[in-house]
Amino acid sequence: MIRYLVLYWTFFKQRIKVLMEYRVNFLIGASSTLFVQAASILSIWVVMRQVPTLNGWAMAEIWLVYGLLMLSKSINHMFADNLWTLGWDYVRTGNFDRLLVRPIDPLFHLLADRFCHDGIGHFVTGLILVVVSLVQLNVVVTPLKVIYMIITVVSGGAIFIALNLITGVSGFWVMDSTPVIRVVFEMHEFAKFPLSIYPKAISAVLTFLIPYGLASFYPASYVLGRDVPPTLALATPVVAALLVFISYRVWLFGLRHYSSTGS
């Protein structure tokens, strides 16, 4: 474990050196997602300032749902963004062979190969929204609530990564797995808002099948003391662990079917 942490730090330092070759672009890149999120947040603000609630949720409460999701998303974006490139940048080009001949876990190598600084913008957005929401709503922040939110965010990040890994493994067969990943990944957009605004079927999918709701709506409801099944509000780490296990098995299955370009 410690060996892998040291290795990750080495990879990370190299990546930062590469990024620092274009310093201005690094800064713009790191803040770029901030602008994209600002567009969505500004849109919600423009609408919500005219109505008291969205299906019983005040604007500040929506910021908590949105913010928790952004924090989870940022973990995936910063530390596992390379899963998107597995098909076209590693399998198709034969670059994946490079990962297989080294004495470390190829999945770890793939993830450590590229820290994605664009995710910093998501992290900052999420953090600002969560803090603003808690302050505006006068939520009593106990150490237990802080620990709960940290565990939820980390688990939410693991859910994002696990789902991207399950879909990304298709890259071993279809060469470009981006469309497959994106179709499932885009479902997280639903979870930016309270699931109660959607038809029941969509809400069920986001709770049990593609459980992005466990990274936003249920934890936010729990923190705000809303009526939500505690089993669901506390299920995030368990579901995340289960999904990580399944996704790793799927990865191993894909790995066994990998055939090199041979050139």
Partner: peptide, 27 residues
């Protein structure tokens, strides 16, 4: 600059809101 990812994303974010794709300008 020879590197445009950040600029492209910035443009995308600004356009997303100010084009009226998400909210009608009238609002």
């Amino acid at each position: 600059s020879t590197e445009v990812w950040g600029m492209g994303m910035l443009r995308y974010g600004v356009a997303l809101f100010f084009s009226g794709a998400l909210v009608p300008l009238a609002m």
